[in-house]
Nucleic acid binder design. Structure first.
Ligand code: TTP
Length: 688
DNA sequence: GGGCAACGTTGTT
DNA sequence: TTCCAAACAACGTTGCCC
């Protein structure tokens, strides 16, 4: 995720020790503070600038330094083990290259800062102060926001299933660890660490596989409890949630910390999972607070302006969600290490980091953030994808086989999610660890393995052309610009509000009928409407027929079939016209039955004038389809019978979406100076 | 200059 | 010897169209 729209930003450090602190667990402290701050690496090869080395060390060690459970670990030793294990590998080389790029950018930042400081910054200063003032005036300290985070979630679930894991150092994952038990953390083991490094740190480390069904089930149990505290709570991933306990505390005449304490006890007793909690006036603050007494603890940041500001002041910027390794490095270069450092630099933030980041930083400095907690409606998924790592792979045939397998896997995921995509993205990681992506718009939403394969093959071919001897270690496919495929069954779709549980929407669907993505709505609406009218369907005040659920569904199904057939015909026609082109010619889509709509109200489509489910999103999707149908027809009409375009993506074609050629040089990632200047010019344009 | 598509990056879990 | 993940969101930049 990225910082600006992220739900979380502000942060602070454990200054004001609140009385809400719970008994902390184990982990005796030897070196209380190996955390935060930029790491300046120990023994690394020479001959690079120290800037670069620090950047590289920081990259390699990065994640291990921000996690909890590391307090009793000798960081120097851990760092040395990690660096030793890394040296000489392709992975290391790639990291070094990236670090070099970062070092260059950091140097440019510093130069730029020096230049700026010689200029008149009064306008920037005024803008920053105005922004701060407006933020301050909107500060809301009235809510009781709680962030909950299960401790070592995957590991905790694993230990519940297999009690022999209890109390021993073990980790969840394969070649890379997803997480590990707190016992393992004492050795310096942590999330995102390669397993072979973890084994060096902790030879007795036991490894267990991931088990998502169990995680999902356990998350469901926990959420059932959370719901009783705040029916409007917001899950954020499987193991995290935000709650607004303002009402609960009022209704039950209980303090925030007591309520949270009670909640945590309930979850522990009923679900066997310990959770940590943060209590504060905003979501970002609550999240930060939650990390203070992890594991199995809670912490409250008092809701006064003074307490919040004080807490933020000493907090490493790295603790703020949205500030990662790179931004931390850049901020460090301009003298910003803790949140209090942001203020003196406020006039420089926009010119140095851009409008969005500047605002984000100022907001964090004040400890201001989101106070409204609400579940997402489950329809906001932006992409569905799958990818896999394997031993270096090369050769046309092998790559195609892998591509096909990936397309098959993606079809499964698309079915699960009940969506189609209008853009397909191919991702490849070279044997050097360099990552490349290629993407194309498809206009007609796709989801079948055959369509996905056909669309992605040309992208692979392109890569093969661009990179002779293409050798990869990862291949992935992802669909974006999603369109809802299942026409409901899930009451949520047409608005009949259901329990706000996102998980259900993606997991409960087993029935093929439910999963079967809908085929686009029909062209000649007349068909079913006329039929319906004749068969005496009642009509509402606007003249639209009111259909009983079942009939509506049947009619919708029929419409979709007709529509699909027409689309198929059109696309086949096109296909034939530019014959050859070898390749797998799978049918566009095999007609599958779709679950019917269970809605009776309907709106008219402005294009085809046919009734559509009374749902804004559904209607918009329908309109898109209507428009795309028109476009296809236009293309078909405009292409001379025997002179087809040299190469048209089959289902992809509308003039507007014909891919634009843009041979982009693939540079090592560093930004040229002129680019930098330009971007700054753009950045300055914003603020105000 | 806006809008949009493509691509690379950063960040989070 | 083996030898650094997967899934997702958001943003900045670039190039092109209108
Ligand atoms: C950080 C991280 C987490 N995960 C998974 C495994 C975690 O159990 C789950 C939740 O992540 P986190 O809540 O970040 O971490 P955690 O619950 O394992 O441990 P703790 O909060 O006590 O420090 O997400 C990954 O798969 N990859 C990652 O890089």
């Amino acid at each position: 995720m990225d910082r600006r729209l992220s739900d979380d930003e502000n942060g602070a450090r454990d200054v004001s020790q609140s009385p809400t602190t719970e008994p902390k667990q184990d982990i005796d402290t030897v070196k209380p503070e190996a955390d935060e701050g930029i790491v300046t690496g120990p023994a690394v090869p020479a001959q690079a600038s120290t800037e670069q080395l620090n950047a590289l060390t920081h990259r390699l060690l990065g994640p291990s330094l921000t996690k909890s459970g590391q307090e009793g670990v000798s960081q120097d030793n851990v760092s040395q083990v990690i660096l030793d294990a890394s040296k000489g590998s392709k992975f290391y080389e790639r990291e070094a290259a990236l670090a070099a790029g970062l070092a260059t950018r950091v140097a440019a930042l510093q130069t730029r800062k020096a230049k700026l400081e010689a200029q008149d910054l009064r306008v920037h200063l005024r803008n920053a102060d105005a922004f701060l003032a407006s933020l301050e005036s909107s500060r809301d300290l009235s809510r009781i926001i709680v962030h909950l985070d299960c401790d070592a979630f995957y590991a905790a679930v694993a230990a519940l299933k297999d009690p022999t894991l209890k109390g021993i150092p073990f980790a969840v994952g394969g070649s890379v660890l997803s997480t590990c038990s707190y016992e393992a953390r004492k050795f310096g083991v942590r999330s995102a660490m390669p397993a072979f490094v973890a084994r060096k740190l902790c030879p007795e480390l036991k490894l267990v596989d991931q088990d998502f069904p169990s995680y999902i089930a356990k998350a469901g149990e926990i959420r059932a409890i959370l719901q009783t505290y705040d029916p409007n709570f917001q899950p954020a991933g499987l193991d995290e949630s935000y709650l607004d306990l303002t009402a609960y505390c009022q209704d039950n005449d209980i303090s925030a910390s007591d309520a949270v304490s009670k909640l945590r006890t309930e979850v522990r007793e009923k679900c066997g999972i310990t959770i940590s909690a943060g209590i504060a006036a905003t979501a970002p603050l609550a999240k930060i607070a939650g990390n203070v007494n992890k594991p199995d603890g809670q912490f409250e940041i008092p809701s006064t302006r003074e307490a919040v500001m004080a807490y933020m002041a000493d907090l490493s910027v790295r603790k703020v969600a949205g500030i990662g390794r790179v931004l931390q490095c850049e901020l460090d270069a301009v003298g910003i290490r803790v949140c209090a450092d942001i203020y003196p630099q406020r006039a420089l933030l926009v010119p140095l980091f851009g409008d969005k980041t500047a605002k984000f930083l100022l907001t964090s400095y004040l400890g201001i953030g989101r106070t409204r907690i609400a579940p997402s409606d489950g329809r906001d998924r932006k992409s569905v994808g799958t990818e896999g790592t394997f031993a270096d792979l090369a050769g046309a045939q092998a790559l195609r086989t892998k591509l096909r397998q990936t397309a098959e896997a993606l079809e499964e995921d698309m079915k699960q999610a009940g969506v189609k995509g209008r853009t397909v993205v191919l991702k490849v990681k070279l044997h050097t660890f360099e990552v490349l992506t290629r993407q194309v718009g498809t206009h007609i939403p796709v989801w079948t393995k055959d369509d996905i394969y056909r669309i992605s093959l040309p992208m692979l071919e392109r890569l093969e052309k661009e990179i002779p001897g293409l050798k990869i270690r990862l291949l992935g496919l992802r669909c974006t610009h999603l369109v809802e495929a299942k026409l409901s069954v899930d009451k949520n779709f047409f608005g009949a509000a259901k329990a706000p549980n996102t998980e259900e929407r993606f997991c409960v669907c087993q029935d093929d009928q439910i999963l079967a993505p809908a085929v686009p709505p029909p062209e000649r609406a007349s068909a079913h409407r006329a039929e319906g009218s004749r068969s005496g369907v009642p009509v509402d005040e606007d003249g639209w027929e009111i259909w009983p659920e079942a009939e509506f569904e049947a009619a919708a199904e029929q419409e979709r079939k007709e529509e699909f057939e027409e689309l198929l015909k059109l696309s086949q026609e096109l296909e034939e016209r530019h014959d050859q082109d070898n390749g797998a010619k799978a049918p566009l889509e095999s007609s599958r039955s779709t679950s019917p709509a269970d809605d009776v109200e309907s709106w008219a489509c402005p294009i085809c004038n046919r009734p559509q489910p009374a749902d804004e999103r559904a209607l918009n999707e329908h309109i898109d389809l209507c428009l795309s149908r028109e476009t296809i027809r236009e293309v078909v009409r405009s292409v001379p019978e025997n002179k087809a375009p040299a190469k048209l993506e089959k289902p992809t074609l509308p003039s507007k979406q014909v891919p634009r050629k843009r041979a982009r040089p693939r540079g090592g990632g560093s930004i040229s100076k002129s680019n930098h200047e330009q971007s700054n010019a753009k950045r300055r344009a914003f603020f105000s």
